[in-house]
Design a protein around this nucleic acid. Sequence first.
DNA 1: ACCTGAACACCGTTCAAGT
DNA 2: ACCTGAACACCGTTCAAGT
Lengths: 223, 223
Amino acid sequence: MAKKASGGQQREKALSREQIIKAAIELLDSSGESGLTFRVLSERLATGAGAIYWHIANKNDLLTAACDAIIANAVELTATGDTPEEVIRALALGVFDAMDEHPWVGSTFTLSPGQSPVLRIVERIGQQVRVLGVPEDAQWATASALIAFILGVGGQNAANRQLARAKGFTRSDFLETVAAAWSQLDPEEYSFARSIAEPLRTHDDRADFLAGIEIILRGIRAK
Amino acid sequence: MAKKASGGQQREKALSREQIIKAAIELLDSSGESGLTFRVLSERLATGAGAIYWHIANKNDLLTAACDAIIANAVELTATGDTPEEVIRALALGVFDAMDEHPWVGSTFTLSPGQSPVLRIVERIGQQVRVLGVPEDAQWATASALIAFILGVGGQNAANRQLARAKGFTRSDFLETVAAAWSQLDPEEYSFARSIAEPLRTHDDRADFLAGIEIILRGIRAK
DNA sequence: ACCTGAACACCGTTCAAGT
DNA sequence: ACCTGAACACCGTTCAAGT
């Protein structure tokens, strides 16, 4: 890590917005959402807390930019396929995997509705919905359904991960805990939750996510 | 508002968990998520900040309990219908309307994954998925899809509301802003977002939500 | 133009002390 | 058993002062 120039001098090389965002992502990946503070971040960047504000409006802006960097990358890499349905599948999985790799992303979409990261997904999905031949007046609702599902899964997964991290749990610890709790619910009132507790223990999030996408695609086709 | 007994005496009537949760909901409804602090809340309850901790574990616990009170009510009132699809529709709309009336609810689910508020929805939806005749090994993924969609919409709407509140916007101010921004995007790169900007201005969230539910129900049927 | 770092106005949470 | 309220350990953000 670079040493600070002594005696309150300025740093040799100017900070950049990109540099700050990169450091923020590293911090978020390694310590979670609560690990990102301006104090820790400025220490990492060998600067003062206030310096960051020259490049970044506020914490919200920083989190949005970090989220956007991840999503831009994921969307760019995965938006391919021979049919619109394949593209949607690839896109959705790309976003899912990005959220899986960077668990904080799923809870960050919510900070910037209508802004870059969500907009990128809206655009890509919307284009494919159009190609699918969905009538114009149903395109928004259709794209919305896919997007709400994708972001909904992301939000819940992010929450699970954060909770697990806070308690020092692994993913399977977490599932065990939920399964154990659900299997002891009242059999009359919570028959479904009870019946699902056991399979939940070993289920595959990614496969369930894909199954959800298939249901929605089928619903669009069946119109 | 009740006066505090003078000279550091104890209050005449004991606080209760329910009382605290009720006051928290009122505060959340009137001032949003950022308006709920232990200082303001304890003032409202004419007590000290620390007193609340006798009844409530922490802020997370408080928010979860507040969310659960709203959802328990919504679910209880709306889980009726002649066919499983009707029940699912009614249930989903009930949750949507509750989230619409209490915009903070949508961002609160994420604080308690696998806990009461989410569990209530999982159980009701899951039961109907079973009645629909979905094979056992697909029930979880099917129920999950519906739930992720419902919570996804809720999360985004809650975010929109919070942003609007923070800027002193009405809902239509907010839509205007998004529509204006989207209509000025690059026509090549953002053709879908541009084409949707105008209709977005006057669209009906609730109708779009229902349309999403229909797509998913169709997808389940079309299996 | 860009950075420094102390200061400000908050938070949630704890806890000794009271009744 | 339940409450009080000061104190603690943080936050994000601002801003006069520096180069």
